[in-house]
Nucleic acid binder design. Structure first.
Lengths: 208, 208
DNA sequence: CCGTGTGAATGGCTTCACAGCC
DNA sequence: GGCTGTGAAGCCATTCACACGG
């Protein structure tokens, strides 16, 4: 049980959660830090250290109960409660998101928004799509924790500003363009091109 | 000019590149480490340190020439040459990728693959889609650096094994399930759900 | 004079190694 | 006996502060 938790630890926690979900699907009940470490390609002491920031979840001599650990991590991440999400921009990326099967029921997309009137009024995977001009009203009337921005590059700035002004505190963007948001708003990115570039770099360092 | 480059530096390099691309679009020619730092929300000394691992790209008293710096970073990342990519699985995610407009011409998707015979023979965004059973042959006949896996969860394992056996050395997966690959193969993930979980965590630490 | 590049110092993440408990 | 949880050590990334060059 420690003081300050490094951000990298949180990122690894999500990785552990994916591994644990996979293990329970395969009927596994208990896991050792060593096993979790191997699947995540890190050291077992780091796994134990990461988990120890939040409590004593393991049993000495035995390991970790997978169901218990999953629930603990969900609790730490704040996805044991329901997080209502919205998606802005129902193009190719937006459609992927509306069809996304989340492993955790806490993450729930409850609406999509698009400027195209043709798309408004329809449902995708059971999720209603509204016209863009209903955005602010919807955010205020519903309990929106997180918004995902999947609009074209040149519309990102405007959309983010509208989200911030409507009180959204967490935004995930698919377009990696620099945006300034207030201190109390968290902004992160899904960086497909960057990930590919990092792979390219690693190939290069291996002489390929 | 330093010895070993931390992996985080490479990740930040891709971020700098996005910022620089954005700046040149807006007609900017020269940038200070301080400006780059501000848009990336890090310290200016870290920007300078990151760049100094690879050479003296700046001009003392003046800053960095944006075009020069872009080219240097592309060179470091190994995307100054052409990287031929393929996408396996042409569902929603696969379609996003084939339609993806890369900022860097070095990254080039040259084919898609799918098990569905209906999809084979068509083109998406000018990129040919082949039947899955042509995968190995195509990899061997073309110069494939990187493969992107966008198949359903339960097919990932098999696809990754086939890629590895065909000689692919870098794989980007959209399904975050644990896979073992040989030492000389780089595997990374696009983790949409994990990013959302991290946002949820940050909201929670802020009392939301 | 101004901003980069970099030794030196700092701070924080990871590993080590073992005490404690099942 | 075996594995977790954790002080202490080690190591590596970041910051500091200033010499250097335009």
């Amino acid at each position: 049980m420690k003081e300050v938790t490094p951000e990298v630890t949180i990122r690894r926690l999500t990785r552990y959660l994916r591994c644990l979900e996979f293990m329970s699907e395969n009927g596994k009940k208990v896991v050792l830090s060593k096993e979790l470490a191997k699947t995540c390609k890190i050291s077992s002491s780091l796994v134990r250290r990461d988990l120890s920031y939040f409590g004593d979840f393991g049993v000495k001599g035995t390991g970790y109960d997978i169901e218990v650990l999953k629930q603990k991590i969900r609790n730490i991440l704040g996805i044991d409660r329901t997080r209502n999400l919205i998606v802005i921009g129902i193009g190719n990326v937006g459609r992927v998101l509306l069809n996304y099967q989340f492993m955790n029921p806490g993450l729930r997309i409850i609406a999509g928004f698009d400027k195209d009137p043709q798309k408004a009024g329809k449902k995708i995977n059971g999720i209603p799509v509204y016209h863009d001009d209903k955005l602010e009203e919807f955010i205020k009337n519903n309990n929106i924790s997180i918004a995902v921005v999947a609009v074209p590059r040149d519309a990102v700035h405007e959309v983010v500003n509208r989200l911030v002004n409507s009180g959204v505190k967490a935004i995930l963007s698919f377009a990696l363009i620099p945006i300034q948001v207030p201190e109390d708003v968290v902004l992160s990115y899904v960086e497909i091109e960057s990930e590919l570039e990092i792979l390219s770099y690693k190939l290069k360092t291996r002489g390929l």
